[in-house]
């Protein structure tokens, strides 16, 4: 189960609270922060400072894990901009859930030579959900964003299951 982030990963990186962040810039920022917090650079300081640096390095790693994945970034953004909204919108449309059962069945029964084709179709669906998610955040419609984040979980699970089969 995904835990609520304990700290604001955007703040840890010193970037704006937004979904669309340039991934190369994020990676550069991660490398820069990692260098600054590297033990080799912080040898001269005392034990208490050393612990603080270690803690900060752990925060940077946690934040990077969230920010580098657009879906996890979206989940964190939802927690920050609209606390509790993910919980409120947990009940999904039955038609979507029936499709999710169909999809899970297709994944289970998928022949090895059909995996690539199915992956392609699921990725397309995920892209469509992500596009809706971007629009929802841009419009400040956090309920719609929460639904897209929840729906994406089923597609990402299907992709992960296919990954183990190919």
């Amino acid at each position: 189960m995904t835990k609520a982030p304990l700290l604001d990963p955007f703040a840890v990186f010193g970037v704006e609270h937004r979904l669309d962040l340039e991934e190369h810039a994020l990676e550069r920022r991660y490398l820069q922060l990692s260098r600054e917090l590297h033990p080799d650079r912080n040898r001269a300081i005392g034990a208490a400072d050393c612990a603080a640096v270690l803690l900060r390095a752990a925060e940077v790693n946690d934040a990077w894990r969230v920010l580098r994945d657009p879906w996890e970034r979206a989940r964190a953004l939802s927690h920050i901009l609209a606390p509790g909204i993910l919980e409120q919108h947990k009940s999904l449309d039955p038609d979507f859930l029936l499709d999710a059962i169909d999809l899970a069945e297709q994944v289970t029964l998928c022949e090895p030579n059909a995996v690539a084709n199915l992956q392609g179709r699921i990725k397309q669906q995920a892209d469509a959900i992500f596009a809706t998610l971007q629009k929802a955040f841009a419009a400040g419609d956090h309920a719609l964003a929460a639904q897209q984040i929840h729906q994406s979980k089923y597609l990402r699970k299907a992709l992960a299951d296919l990954e183990t089969r190919s």
């Binding site: 947990k90 009940s91 999904l92 859930l97 059962i101 984040i149 929840h150 729906q151 089923y154 699970k157």
Partner: peptide
């Protein structure tokens, strides 16, 4: 028919 989901874990139950 009842169909419900737990989106945290990606579970679905019909």
């Amino acid at each position: 028919t009842g169909v419900v989901g737990a989106p945290e874990c990606g579970d679905v139950m019909k």
